[in-house]
Design a protein around this nucleic acid. Structure first.
Length: 454
RNA sequence: GUGGUUGUAGCUCAGUCGGUUAGAGCGCCGGAUUGUGGUUCCGGAGGUCGUGGGUUCAACCCCCAUCAUCCACCCCA
């Protein structure tokens, strides 16, 4: 038992029944993406570490899975470096590739690298696994899928609005009750400037992001511990307590951060987005949440986060505007905006709320019982005919006991079973059994086809 | 990276004060039923009690270590 094979922690195997439900999620998301004119791309599982490092903050670098150089990777490492036991420096010598941590950074690299072949604004979607060397826990895996949609090469806020529409449509189709929270990094910058802590914006946003989780007192405590001045924290209080409708909140915050041009720009952006949304007749609760921060520090404009209303699981979709992601790779002044659906968390939510439709099974529609060689010869052409008609079917590969074959069909949840032995063959017919009702019909092959096409 | 939880059959879990042959339910296999699954009845297989050490006449049970697991923090989808 101890020797049973296993998989690395934080990874999972997916059974057929799970796969068909996962594919239901992927297919839904994919078709909505396509509805808005986004096209798929894929990038390699591995990227050069130089592409990945430094893009996710210090914490993120630690969570990158590094891939050992091939060959005799230790041979060229100087002795003093080995003895120094400095993991970071040693890593630089023995590893130059890593597994991707998200889809956005590889996408930025993709855009810069292939800029001459792309049509801008470039609208792409990408559904692939990413890897993080995090410690796994509830709703957190080391290998999980992201479903990203991004538009790059356009400043227009219409892109933000389109992404919000996509969120609304995806969750409408999946029947998940969600709330979309939206904020703007420029407003956060404005706040930081106004309270006199402009260079602490990351600390401030990370702390206030936790407001609804740990409460006001603990947020203030954390700000204090991070070295934010008492005066600044005091000035921050009314901002954290803002309430009212989205436009009321914007009006209030505007009065506070009027001296910050960046902050005002953020407010103008948000007003424009809400104005657009009003015209879209959106069936989604969009809430301006000034405490929403999101960790990734490449965001520069609007930021989004989606939470399921009926399940405690953290955010299931997130994203935002990033003005300078491609700048790091040598292509400045190309703005992009995108969001990422966390398929695995969406799966957990749907499983918990039992939202999957009944008929997601990937099993064949018809099962043929195998009675022996002559029956096989009689049935094989029928299988060919069914498949030509697009009806999925299979025959048991050996003439096993009928009970065993029926159990097989039952466990695979195949809805129809065809039986054809001596008596049926004599009449040129087959018996079709409906596995759910137990009813049986004696049919000719033509009748069988018609029956199954219903 | 920090703190905690739990490891007994394929799965979920009992297991008394440390005591001789470690149990249940579900699942699996076979039969009742040689051309009929999902219900029922009967029978059967399956365990180095996570691993290594220690205490003891004796350890699933106590101690130490180790590995795995799950949960929380950090961070995040």
């Amino acid at each position: 038992m101890a020797q049973k094979p296993s998989i690395p922690k934080g990874t999972r195997d997916f059974f057929p029944a799970l796969m068909s439900r996962r594919n239901y999620i992927f297919d839904t998301i994919k078709s909505v993406f396509q509805l808005y004119g986004f096209q798929p791309i894929e990038t390699p599982a591995m990227e050069n570490l130089s592409t990945l490092m430094g893009k996710y903050g210090e914490e993120g670098d630690k969570l990158l899975f590094k891939v050992l150089n091939s060959g005799d990777f230790a041979a060229n490492v100087p002795d003093d470096l080995l003895l120094a036991k400095d993991s970071i420096k040693l890593t630089n010598k023995i590893s130059e590739k890593g597994l991707r941590y998200d889809l956005t950074v590889p996408f930025a690299r993709f855009v810069v690298q292939n800029r001459n072949e792309l049509v801008f604004p470039f609208k792409r979607y990408q559904i692939q696994p990413v890897w993080r060397a995090d410690r796994p826990q509830k709703g957190r895996y080391r290998e999980f899928y992201q479903c990203d949609v991004d538009v790059i090469g356009s400043d227009s806020l219409l892109n933000e609005v389109e992404l919000i529409q996509i969120v609304a449509e995806v969750y409408r189709r999946l029947k998940i009750n969600v709330c979309l929270k939206i904020n703007n990094r420029k407003i956060l910058t404005g706040i930081a400037e106004t309270i006199g802590e402009a260079n602490r914006i990351v600390d401030i946003t990370v702390a206030i992001d936790k407001l609804d989780k740990i409460g006001l007192d603990k947020v203030n405590l954390e700000l204090e511990q991070k070295g934010v001045s008492k005066e600044a924290i005091y000035k921050l209080q009314p901002i954290l307590a803002l309430a009212g409708s989205n436009s009321e909140k914007l009006d209030q915050i505007e009065k506070v951060i009027f001296a910050s041009p960046t902050g005002l720009k953020g407010i103008a952006e948000m007003r424009k987005i809400f104005e657009y949304l009003k015209r879209m007749n959106l069936n989604l609760n969009v809430e301006l949440d000034l405490t929403l921060a999101r960790g990734l520090n490449y965001y520069t404009g609007a930021i989004f986060e989606v939470k399921a209303n009926d399940v405690e699981i953290g955010s299931i979709t997130g994203g935002g505007r990033y003005d300078d992601l491609t700048g790091i790779f040598g292509l400045p002044d190309v703005s992009g905006v995108g969001i990422s659906f966390g398929a695995d968390r969406i799966f957990d939510v749907m499983a918990q709320l039992d939202l999957f439709p009944e008929n997601t099974s990937s099993a064949a529609k018809v099962f043929f019982v195998n009675f022996g060689e002559s029956e096989e010869a009689y049935l094989l052409p029928v299988l060919v005919q069914l498949r030509q008609e697009g009806i999925s079917c299979e025959i048991f590969p050996e003439a096993a006991k009928m009970k065993k074959q029926m159990i097989y069909a039952n466990r695979k949840e195949i809805p129809f079973v065809v039986l054809a032995g001596e008596s049926e063959m004599a009449e040129g017919k087959v018996t079709l059994k409906n596995m759910e009702t137990g009813n049986q019909l004696l049919l000719t092959i033509t009748e069988l086809l018609n029956e199954l096409k219903k």
